[in-house]
Each structure stands twice: as C-alpha cells, then as structure tokens.
C-alpha cells in the first residue's frame, strides 16, 4: 500500500482528501438541518425523541466516529496544505490585486474555515458535550436549545457563523467537484449553481431557526 500513501501525500492527493471529506461534511450539514427543523414544532417531544435516537442507536454511534474523523482529517489537511502553500511564496507582492482575477470566497477558505471551526467548538460545547459526553445537562435538549437561542448575543454569533459557513460552502461545494476532476460542459454550470444555492439556503435555514426562537416565537 506504499503506492497509495505516496499518491495521497502529494498536493493532488491531499486536495483529493480535502474534496472527499468536504463533500462528506456537506452531506452531514443537510442531515443536521433537516433534524433541526424539528425545533420549529412547539412541542419538543419529536426533537427530544430524535435526539434520544441519535444518542443511543448503535449505527449512529459508529457514524459519529466517522463524522468526527471527517472533520479532523479535513482540518488537519487544511493546515498541512496551508503551510505548504505559504512556503511556495515566502515573499509576497508589494502591490497585489487578486480581486481582479478571483473571488474573495475562493481566496479565503482558510479564514472562513477557521471561523467555522471556532463556531463548531462553541457549538459542541453548548449542546453535544453536556448532552452526550458529560451528561451534565439539567434539562431536555429541546428546552436547552430554546433557552440558548433565546440569548440574543448567542443567536447573533450563530447567525454570523452561518454567514462564514455560506462563504466557505460557496467556493467549497463546486471546488470539490473540480478537484475530483468532475468537470464537464454539460454538468459544471449546474454544479456551480447548485453549490451557490446550497451555500445560501442551508446556512440560511440553520440561521432561521435560532432567529425564529429568539425573536418571533
């Protein structure tokens, strides 16, 4: 298997891993959003039942390890590639105008990704850790979500993070397909549109739930 680790250790191999883990994490976002919609039902029974299922089902427990693995690999490879890329240009330009040839989103995947990572840590600390790891939660996860999102600064932080997630997805979605070599005049225009739609609708969907709980409910 030496050939495989060698193939995956180069730039192209590392970007392949980034694209595959990225697409995997995108699929998780969709699942997470659909389940969050249960928070909109004023009776928390369905959301709590769903949370209990996620907490106890053995297949989900195994999938959770894969999901964490996906995040960790995506983050570590991002760091490795970023260090290599910085080394490729030790001295920058005195005057540079990259906005003329590329989008801000595409050039700042490291920035948007890092912000999403900070959000992810806070987010896990709010819900995953007390309800799943330490079991120190004193209320149901539905009640916890309602109280947490009732906090205006927390909700605004959540919404800001969703903007950065949108920036990350706007480039990441279509970039993953390009890295995989899945580019074709018939499909690429659709993939790009789908990526932009996904980048807008999914974070907007996530943000709408705490906004609803905080300001309308």
């Amino acid at each position: 298997m030496g050939w495989l680790s060698k193939a995956l250790s180069g730039n192209l191999g590392q970007k392949l891993i980034m694209s595959l883990t990225g697409l995997f994490l995108i699929s998780f976002l969709l699942e997470h959003l659909l389940s969050n919609l249960l928070l909109l039902k004023s009776d928390g029974a369905d959301f709590n039942a769903y949370a209990e299922f996620m907490k106890t089902n053995p297949v989900i427990q195994a999938a959770e390890y894969v999901l964490f693995g996906g995040f960790i690999v995506h983050i570590i490879y991002a760091a490795i590639i970023t260090v290599k890329n910085k080394k490729a240009r030790p001295q920058g330009y005195a005057y540079n105008k990259p906005s003329e040839n590329s989008s801000w989103f595409s050039r700042n995947m490291g920035l948007s990704g890092s912000m999403v990572l900070i959000f992810l840590i806070v987010h896990l600390k709010s819900f995953f850790v007390p309800h799943k790891i330490t079991n120190t939660a004193t209320m149901t996860i539905y009640d916890d979500a309602i109280i947490t999102f009732g906090n205006v600064p927390y909700t605004l932080f959540y919404v800001a993070a969703m903007f950065l997630l949108a920036f990350h997805l706007n480039h990441g979605f279509q970039s993953a397909f390009q890295t995989l070599g899945l580019r074709h005049p018939k499909y690429t225009p659709f993939i790009k549109k789908l990526g932009t739609a996904f980048a807008i609708l999914v974070p907007a969907g996530f943000a709408a739930i705490p906004l609803y709980i905080c300001f309308i409910r």
């Binding site: 180069g10 890329n85 490729a88 003329e100 040839n101 590329s102 595409s106 480039h171």
Partner: peptide, 22 residues
Amino acid sequence: MVAQMEAEGFGACTNTGACSVE
C-alpha cells in the same frame, strides 16, 4: 510531471481560477 511539480516546491491548487484569468 506531478512528482516533479511537487519537488520544485509549487503550492497546491485551491481552484480560485486566477491562473486562467491571467
């Protein structure tokens, strides 16, 4: 060719598309 590209110390592709524009 890809191995040589790596050995020369060029960075990885982020698909910004700047290269094709310029």
